[in-house]
Amino acid sequence: MKRLLFLAPVAVFGVLLVVFFLGLGRDPRSLPSVFIGKTLPEFAAPAVRPGDVGLSRADLNGGDPVLLNVFASWCGPCRVEHPVFMRLRAEGVPIHGLDWKEDAEAGYRWLQENGDPYIRVGSDPAGRVGIELGVAGVPETFVIDKQGRVRYRHVGAVTPDVWERKLRPMMEDLRREP
């Protein structure tokens, strides 16, 4: 019996090792969304900016490829990617925002302070819309094509590198699509 007790640590470690090994195969950054190639489900998120219209599914079939960025003021990596979106906005790339799991007020303050790169921005205080969209955490960014279909989902901050290497070429291709 006592021997078994001393065996426990190595047994537990063995299990952990197997889990970690299997876990290596996955890439936590590129989560395929279940909506790849499909349109997102209907949703309507109330406004973040006072007196604004908020964000709904309909805003995503505007005839131009757009980015949908899920963010929150309490999220560290969102601060890292925010200046990138500010620059994209200045370059004319259309971006919509979804403020996840916090009061609209907090999101609005954050946008006021750091700048507001979004065309439409919706508030999702309880994370309900996030569940609809299959959001696992913030930040996440969806690339949506002219027909309103999700073409790519990026998990984690959109750094200048990610934008230049991955998202920009993708957006340019989508823009050329019929």
Binding site: F20, L24, D27, P28, R29, G76, P77, V155, G156
Partner: peptide
Amino acid sequence: RSGILTSV
């Protein structure tokens, strides 16, 4: 560093 977890 192994890519099993994401982090800032």
